[in-house]
């Protein structure tokens, strides 16, 4: 609290000096706090960060409307960014052009800043990598009865189902979900508990985002877990992004835009390779991902537009309700 008061005083006494940039971060403090520190060191722009759940922060921004104190929204998923895209200002082409068009909003209101792949996590005591399916279609096979975990309330699982719907059609997605449920799939709250359940041997495999293995290993170094990447072109091989946008109501649009631009600078992108506690993909071409990750270029999941996820999500949730995954 002392620090807050001091920061407020400094801000107030600074007079002509710049105010700190206010960032609403749905990304975990444990992971991105060092990134913010690097930004301040590189640019001299101070930041103050409100951490929370991405979707709840998006709801907050929507309720605040024109009075939002936020300058930047840094979110876990395209869904949260899409929910407030009307309140975001278009980003400059120099920033947008740093990444593939598939990783940003169609009108350039937000950009992806790091990538996360859907993978199958497996228990290495019980399975060899070759035994683990590299296609989600195999998860409905009786061989996997009662051995698979998913997180139906989680945004990343819902994004994956959306990708599958858009790639294969609603009927195929429904058939897959129905068969998965008939196959005794177990459900969890979110990704991390799935990885932990796999580590504990409660289940043998689970559908998750790729970067949870190092987080769980930090807590349990001997956890017998590893990722199996899905084959190129598989409807489950979705690559989604965490991303950022600048609020149209920001009083510090210049610094805010500089921040988002810096996230896509070589320095901002190398953070995910050299420093981050987990292992996300940098999105800027020419910066290779950490060793052990399948290169982004080889992933080629379902060709879906991340921007379309927002409107498609309600149909996905309906499908999950119809197939009994959600009430």
């Amino acid at each position: 609290m002392v620090a807050v008061a001091a920061a407020a005083l400094l801000g107030a006494c600074g007079g002509g000096d710049k105010q700190a940039l206010t960032i609403y971060s749905g990304r975990e403090e444990e992971i991105v706090a060092p990134l913010f520190a690097k930004f301040t060191a590189a640019t001299g722009i101070e930041v103050q960060v409100r951490y929370g759940d991405s979707a709840e922060l998006a709801a907050s921004i929507a309720e605040e409307g024109e009075n939002s104190p936020a300058d930047v929204f840094f979110a876990q998923d395209p869904g949260s960014l899409g929910a407030v895209r009307n309140l975001l200002a278009p980003l400059p082409p120099a920033t947008l052009d740093r990444i593939d068009a598939g990783f940003r909003d169609a009108e350039g209101r937000w950009v992806g800043t790091s990538g996360r792949a859907r993978v199958i996590v497996y228990n290495t005591d019980r399975l060899q990598e070759a035994d683990v399916p590299d296609t989600v279609a195999a998860l409905t096979d009786p061989a996997w009865k009662g051995r698979v975990g998913v997180a139906p309330t989680n945004a990343s699982f819902q994004a994956f189902v959306t990708g599958m719907r858009l790639a294969l059609g609603d009927a195929a997605a429904r058939a897959w979900l129905t068969a998965l449920r008939a196959n005794g799939v177990k459900t969890y709250e979110k990704n991390a508990p799935i990885v932990e359940a796999v580590a504990a041997g409660e289940i043998d495999i689970g559908l998750v985002n790729h970067y949870y293995v190092p987080l769980v290993k930090a807590e349990q170094p001997d956890a017998p877990i590893a990722n199996r990447f899905l084959r190129a072109g598989d409807p489950g091989a979705l690559v989604s992004v965490a991303g950022a946008g600048v609020l149209a109501t920001s009083g510090q649009a210049e610094d805010a835009t500089a921040f988002v631009g810096w996230l896509l600078s070589d320095e901002g992108q190398r953070f995910y390779v050299d420093e981050a506690a987990e292992t996300e993909y940098p999105l800027v071409a020419g910066i290779p991902a950490k060793a052990g990750l399948r290169p982004l270029a080889e992933m080629r999941g379902p060709a879906v537009d991340l921007t379309s996820f927002g409107p498609e999500l309600s149909r996905t949730v309906e499908l999950l309700r119809e197939t009994g995954f959600l009430t």
Partner: peptide, 22 residues
């Protein structure tokens, strides 16, 4: 989480912050 002043961290938000990353 939504209403605290920025930088005002409570024990409950600290528990949340850590369980978020398992």
């Amino acid at each position: 989480l939504l209403l605290r002043p920025i930088g005002f961290d409570t024990l409950a938000t600290e528990i949340w912050k850590q369980t978020q990353v398992a």
